[in-house]
Design a protein around this nucleic acid. Structure first.
Lengths: 144, 144
DNA sequence: TCGTTAACTTGACTCACTCCAGAAAAGACG
DNA sequence: CGTCTTTTCTGGAGTGAGTCAAGTTAACGA
């Protein structure tokens, strides 16, 4: 778990101003991976008091743009953010409860980056989402 | 390009009632792959006259549930539908203009379906989205 | 310490999508 | 063919994540 000064260093490294909302958002995402925007707002407000939702949206966009956070939005779910960036990992999401877990890349460092026919597109990233059932839901389904 | 009777057979095969809106939606999706809901509504109205957006949403959900259509929704885009189902193909989407193209599976019939650590999840599908730049945007970016 | 400029606040607004209740049509059965 | 039941369609209101815009506040370099 990174400290406040780590976050500050991250922000300065991205030439972003160091403000309380930004620190709080960074910290919230680090401690709540895959949290949706609303939860992040909640966590930030617990730590800072009143913060406008607009500020949080703003900060999230700024940090995502700077590469400090990553935004993921699986179908049927609202936007979620995570702090693991730059290591090209993927996600499993549970069809019934929506739980998300990280999955490291199965086939080397840039999985499936070779499409069989790329239609002339210049591909720079492959995003993989595994759909399935989480342990809890699998158990629940069996016992019912 | 399938004919009206093909669509009718599809609907009956899925034990769905054959109605004009459904035929029109099927036809629209077949002739406009990756179209968003609004465009589909537009095409359907061109063919049928007045149809409520509600009916189209309803039909799209029914057809998607029956496996006749597939819904895709890349980040930052509204829901789109396509008629290619059951062949496990993926998509490239252009970061700048949002264009979508089909990509056949690169590594056999179920690509990347083996996650290195599945956290106990039972995985039944791997969805891959390639991000990049389409030929038009690549050219435009170079010349500017 | 001061000025510039980026960041934050407030509040209204948009837009894809959903919910609801009633009307209409499709399919089943005699 | 006519009636009944079920499903679908219509129209309109509603929801909620996210955005826009204008004005205020605060970070940071000089």
């Amino acid at each position: 778990m990174p400290t406040a000064s780590d976050f500050e260093r991250l922000l300065r490294g991205a030439s972003l101003r160091v403000t309380a909302p930004r620190m709080a958002v960074l910290s919230a995402v680090h401690s709540h991976p895959h949290a949706d925007t609303d939860s992040i707002i909640g966590v930030v407000r617990q730590n800072l008091g009143a913060v406008s939702h607009q500020a949080v949206y703003d900060v999230l966009r700024a940090l995502t743009g700077a590469g400090l956070l990553r935004k993921i939005e699986p179908q049927g779910s609202v936007a979620r953010y995570e702090a693991r960036v730059g290591d090209n990992h993927h996600h499993v999401v549970c069809r019934s409860c929506g739980a998300i877990a990280d999955v490291d890349c199965a086939v080397g460092h840039a999985p499936c980056l070779d499409a069989s026919d790329d239609h002339g597109f210049v591909i720079d990233e492959a995003e993989v989402i595994y759909w399935g059932s989480c342990p809890e839901c699998t158990t629940a389904a069996k016992s019912s």
